[in-house]
Every structure is written in C-alpha cells, then in structure tokens.
C-alpha cells in the first residue's frame, strides 16, 4: 500500500476514534449503569454554537457539551491526534481557555448555567507529553479558573474491544465519575454499537475520501436503488442520480451525525456536514467524472452511479492520486485537525 493511501486510512481511523471517544465520554454522564438505561434529564450536544457572555458575536463550538440536572455542565474537546509540532500546542490550550468563561447558549431555559468543567480528552499516545507541557506552562501562559481536567483514552483489546478512559489531571465536579475515572474505566465498544453505527460525522471536516464514501454509499446509492435498473446494472453501466446538495446535507445530518442527541434543541446547532464540505466533495466527484453540476448555481448535482466492489478503497485510491490532496495531508500532520 502506498504512503498516501496509508495516510488517508490513518486519518479516517483517527476521525472514527474521535467519534468513539466523544460517545464513550458523554455516556459516563448519560448512561445509568445500574438501571442499564439512558438518563432522560441529561442533555448532550456536539458542535453547538456557544457565546462568551461579553463577546456575543464570537462563537465557540466545543466537541462535547453536557448539561446536568444540577444546572452545571461539562465542555469537552477531543484530540485524537495532537500536532507533532509543539509550537502549535499553545493554540490548542488557548482554544480550551476560551471555554473558561461564562458561556451562553446552553440548552437551559435562560441559556446559562451555574458553572462547567472543561475537559481535554487526549489519546493515550500523546497524553503524558501534553500533560507535561500543560504542567510546565500552568500559571504562565496557560490558566484556568474553572475546573480543568485531562483525561486520556485508548482502545484496549482483550476478549472484547474496549475504550479505556483514565483521568490524568484535575477533578471532575461529578464525584462518582471523578472516582471512576481516577482508577480508569473500560467502556465496552459493544455497549455503544448503535451510536457507533449511526454517528459517522461530527463538526470537523473528515478526510475527503471518507466524505466521498459517505455521500456515495449513504445518499447516492440509496437514491439509485429506487431506479428499476439498479438490480441488474452491470459494472460498466451507470444510473444518473440527480440530487440537490441541501438534500445530501440533510440526509447525512439527520441520519449520520449527532443530530438525534440535540434534535429537541436545534436553534444553535449548525448542520453537519457543512454545506462547503459537500460542495468540496461534489467538486471532487466532478473532477473524477463521477458527477456533474446541473447548472451554474451549483445547487444540484447529477451523480453517475456505478457499482464499485469497495467504495471506500476506490475513493481513497482516487484521492491519493490527487497531488493537491497530498500537500494537504503533509500539512495535516503538522497542524491540529480542527
């Protein structure tokens, strides 16, 4: 396998790991392990637009937002892949420090809460390094007034696959979860199978090849299958599938994002995937002769649906050929993913 393909595959894997970490972490709050059911009084959101009280025009969009019945909350940021270049690390902490304010836009009645924890979730591979960086800069360039907590996570594979979470720094305001994560807790992936299967995208743009795979598999092929020729379509034949890009976005947003977690509180939730991601993906489809814009307004696309044996590999192959994409990938390894 060439280097470019491997890099794309790793990036897709990182993306999915981030989703698994988000789901795993929020469920410490959401899932009642004794009753084995979800608590109804916990509100969860991903990528919600929050304001700092004194700068109403500036939005923050944390990876994780949890509102507890005590009118307290948790804001979390997941970093599966911290930049290699440490000069970028302060930028990450600056982002976290921006959450260290009274935030407006929570799902409470007045959109405010009493206080919140700020959690940085780090993949195990970088957690110690980042922790040391934080400790060395704490009280200098990095300061938090609200509770700040670092939690590391990693997959552990024994008879079954787990994600292991352990607190590395600070104290969560919820004593039970704090105690649990002090020792470290294994979360079986099996338990969250439903979430892992339905959440394929969050508010960070995925690898282009993965975006193409999602659109092709979950939107275009679904539409194509309504065509009576679908069943008998030979590999060298195609079906034209005309779709509005709004429809592509809605299909992925309602079916494969964190939508169902916040569908009762949509007002501050940006639609994910963003329209510009879809447009970028469509431009790529067009450059690959897999689609065409229906007119100059670029609001609607006709896809040339064909049957590929492995859609993801096909699009990874096509994207790895793209020189521009390769340059972006090189850049990607040195900068944060969001």
């Amino acid at each position: 396998m060439n280097k470019e393909k491997k890099t794309i595959e790793n990036s897709i894997d990182d993306y999915n790991n981030t989703i698994h970490a988000i789901v795993g972490f929020i469920n410490f709050y959401r899932y009642d392990t004794e009753k084995k059911e979800y608590k109804e009084d916990i509100k969860v959101f991903q990528g919600r637009k929050l304001n700092i009280s004194d700068t109403p025009d500036k939005f923050l969009t944390p990876d994780i937002g949890i509102l507890l019945p005590t009118n307290c909350g948790v804001i979390g940021e997941v970093k599966n892949n911290f930049p290699k270049d440490k000069s970028y690390w302060l930028k990450n902490f600056t982002q976290l420090m921006s959450y260290d304010n009274d935030l407006i836009g929570w799902t409470s009645v007045d959109e405010k809460i009493r206080t919140h924890d700020i959690v940085l979730l780090l993949h195990h591979s970088r957690s110690r390094e980042v922790l040391n960086y934080f400790l060395n800069n704490k009280g200098k360039e990095i300061n938090f007034i609200k509770p700040f907590i670092i939690i590391e996570y990693t997959r552990s594979d024994q008879r079954q696959a787990y994600i292991f979470f352990r607190k590395e720094y600070g104290n969560l305001s919820d004593n039970n979860i704090n105690e649990l994560l002090e020792k470290g807790e294994q979360v079986p992936m099996w338990v969250f199978l439903k979430e892992y299967s339905t959440i394929k995208i969050y508010d960070s743009e995925p690898e282009l090849a993965f975006m193409l795979h999602l659109i092709w598999t979950y939107v275009v092929s679904m539409k194509a299958s309504d065509n009576p020729r679908f069943k008998t379509l030979a590999k060298n034949q195609k079906i034209e599938v005309k779709i509005k890009i709004d429809e592509v976005m809605t299909e992925l947003y309602e079916g494969y994002s964190f939508y169902r977690f916040h569908r009762e509180n949509l007002e501050r939730q940006p639609k994910i995937p963003k329209l510009e991601w879809i447009k970028r993906a469509c431009e790529k489809f067009i450059s690959l002769n897999e689609a065409k814009w229906d007119d100059n307004s670029k609001q609607s696309v006709t896809f040339y649906f064909k049957k590929y044996d492995d859609t993801l590999s096909y699009f990874i192959e096509k994207c790895s050929d793209d020189v521009q994409n390769k340059e972006q990938l090189e850049l990607f390894s040195d900068i944060e993913d969001k």
């Binding site: 897709i12 894997d13 999915n16 997959r155 594979d157 008879r159 079954q160 696959a161 079986p188 992936m189 099996w190 199978l193 892992y196 299967s197 795979h213 598999t217 979950y218 092929s221 679904m222 194509a224 299958s225 309504d226 679908f230 069943k231 379509l233 049957k307 492995d310 859609t311 993801l312 590999s313």
Partner: peptide
Amino acid sequence: SVLHGNPYIHLSFLDYYDGSIFDIWVLN
C-alpha cells in the same frame, strides 16, 4: 469496505440487489 480490520472489525456493506446498507462489527 473495511473501516477497521484489526483488532476489531468494522465493515461497511452495500447490497447491489436492492441498495440495503449494513455496518458489520466484530467487537468481541
């Protein structure tokens, strides 16, 4: 399509007879 193959398995499966789509997981 293989989204993850080792140590756990996650496949994306698209049926070309009727357009059904499945995720296949091996987590234990």
